[in-house]
Simulated scan of single mutants.
Amino acid sequence: MQWKQITDLVQISEIKNNEGYSLIFKHSTRCSVSSMAKRRFELDWEAIPETTKLYFLDLVSFREISANIAETFQVHHESPQILLIKDGDCVLDASHSDISAEEVAEMINN
């Protein structure tokens, strides 16, 4: 599996309009906790169905996009943070040590 970088606001509209599941990982490149959460997530992400679209946001470089994500999906901004989007709606929002590939897989598979 591979991350698709979010670098443009247009991509948020595309994610909102995607059918099925998309996952956004908001990552602070300046934060060791964020790096640890990302690494732990990637170690277990084989549990996530391959049909899930995986998006990665460097929120230090793209603060405006991060704010747009929070507004679009009606979640409080956190870092690190994952958002699981199903048919345009956020169905899971987790941050810090609550970020879990297994939980994401469970949500998708149920």
Rank of each mutant, 00 (worst) to 15 (best):
S22L: 05
R30I: 07
S34D: 04
N18R: 13
E78K: 04
K38I: 04
T29P: 03
L9S: 15
S28G: 11
L9Q: 09
R30L: 14
T72N: 00
D58E: 07
R39N: 10
L9A: 08
H76S: 12
S34G: 08
Q81N: 02
E71A: 12
S32G: 10
H27R: 08
E64N: 02
N68H: 13
S35R: 15
K53G: 02
V75N: 00
A70V: 04
I24K: 04
S66E: 02
W45M: 11
S28M: 07
I48G: 09
F25P: 02
D44S: 14
P80D: 01
I24L: 11
S13R: 11
R63G: 01
Q11Y: 00
T72Q: 09
H77R: 00
N68Q: 12
Q11E: 12
L23R: 06
T51M: 12
A70S: 12
I65G: 03
V33K: 11
A67T: 10
R30Y: 04
A70N: 00
I15Y: 00
D58W: 03
N17L: 12
Y55F: 15
Y21I: 07
I69Y: 05
T51P: 10
R39D: 12
D8F: 01
K16D: 10
A37Y: 05
L54T: 04
A47L: 15
T7F: 10
Q81E: 09
L23E: 11
I69M: 05
G20Q: 11
D44T: 04
A37R: 04
S79N: 05
Q81C: 01
S34P: 09
S22C: 07
K26M: 14
S79W: 08
L43I: 10
F41S: 07
I12E: 01
I15T: 02
P80V: 03
P49G: 06
S34M: 12
I24F: 03
Q74V: 11
Q81K: 03
F56H: 12
L9I: 12
I24D: 01
F25V: 01
Q11A: 09
T29C: 13
I24V: 10
R40S: 11
E14I: 09
H77W: 06
F56M: 09
T51H: 15
D8L: 01
L23C: 13
V10G: 01
G20R: 09
L43C: 14
I48H: 07
H27M: 11
L59Y: 09
T72C: 03
S61C: 08
N68E: 13
L9H: 10
K26Q: 06
S28I: 05
S61V: 02
I69V: 06
E78S: 11
D44V: 04
V33A: 15
I65D: 01
Q11F: 05
E64F: 02
Q5N: 15
N68A: 14
Q74R: 11
E14N: 08
F41L: 13
R30H: 06
R30S: 13
N17M: 12
D8W: 03
P80Q: 02
D58T: 04
Q81M: 05
R63N: 01
A67V: 10
W45H: 06
R63H: 03
S61Q: 13
D8S: 14
F73G: 00
A47N: 11
S35E: 13
